[in-house]
Design a binder for these strands. Structure first.
Lengths: 146, 146
DNA sequence: GACGTTGACGATACCGAGTCTCACTCAGTA
DNA sequence: TACTGAGTGAGACTCGGTATCGTCAACGTC
């Protein structure tokens, strides 16, 4: 279960001000499972009558991304989404049914990157890997349904 | 060197009409090296005084993508771009200096996907891998420059 | 606790990518 | 040649994201 205080702590450590709107956005993120878009948070805030401006939500997301408290992912649809995550290098596995995401280290990746570098002559600097599939829960639900 | 006739052939085989605007868009794509955005093509068309509507360019790109004659990639900046490519499963290595792209099979990927599936319990259906680095030409140019 | 500084805020205008609509055109066919 | 419907261009529209600007409040200092 994600926790708003994690983000707040990261913010504090980095020397940023702990303002009410930032706490609210952190709380909205914590209240979500899986990926979410900026628009989702804007809607959430409006529904819960939390007085946070649209611009503020975008700014907060930008800041959290910079601090690696959340990460941007690109869905197959081309949409930009965010997921809350630990600030270490990893990748996301995204359930295409329920949108839940899981972090993985995908430790085989450096080898793949090395191989690609060898094959193409490129000096590989970074990569982006996103995996899409069906999570265990949805698999179970699907098989129950027949 | 990409070739407009490749796209035109794919279009023809799929039973789509070979109209002038589609040939023009195919030509614009062929005239590019590396990735490009829809806006790039719109600009190109305007510069060369080719009478192709903006909507038509978007429609053509959508169609070409559907036929796997071009593929969408997401740049680290979050921009959506396209690259011309062969209609088989592969990944792109993108030069962060000159934007040139190269296709690779990244044959180690199925193993990584399998491993991730095992570790998370997800049934992996698809993945998206993009690699960013410096191409051989830019490396050479850089080392010449000191 | 009061105060001052300045980073953060909300409102809102703005921008640009992409989509939708609709009347018109033209490629392919009978 | 006439017909038909896929494809087109113009332009309005939507929506995600950014920029601006006057105001507010977090936080360090006294």
């Amino acid at each position: 279960m994600p926790d708003a205080s994690t983000i707040v702590t990261v913010l504090d450590r980095a020397g940023y001000r702990l303002t009410e709107p930032r706490r609210v956005v952190a709380g909205l993120i914590a209240g979500r499972e899986g990926h979410f878009t900026a628009a989702d948070l804007v809607d959430d805030a409006r529904e819960r009558r939390l007085d946070v401006g649209r611009a503020t939500i975008f700014r907060a997301l930008e800041l959290f991304t910079e601090l690696s408290a959340v990460e941007r992912v690109d869905l197959p649809s081309g949409e930009h989404a965010y997921v809350e995550c630990e600030p270490i290098h990893h990748h996301h596995v995204i359930c295409s049914q329920c949108a839940r995401t899981t972090e993985v280290e995908a430790c085989g990746m450096p080898a793949v990157a090395r191989e690609v570098g060898k094959a193409t002559g490129f000096k590989i600097q970074s990569h982006r890997l996103e995996l899409f599939g069906i999570c265990p829960d949805c698999q179970a639900a699907n098989s129950r349904r027949g």
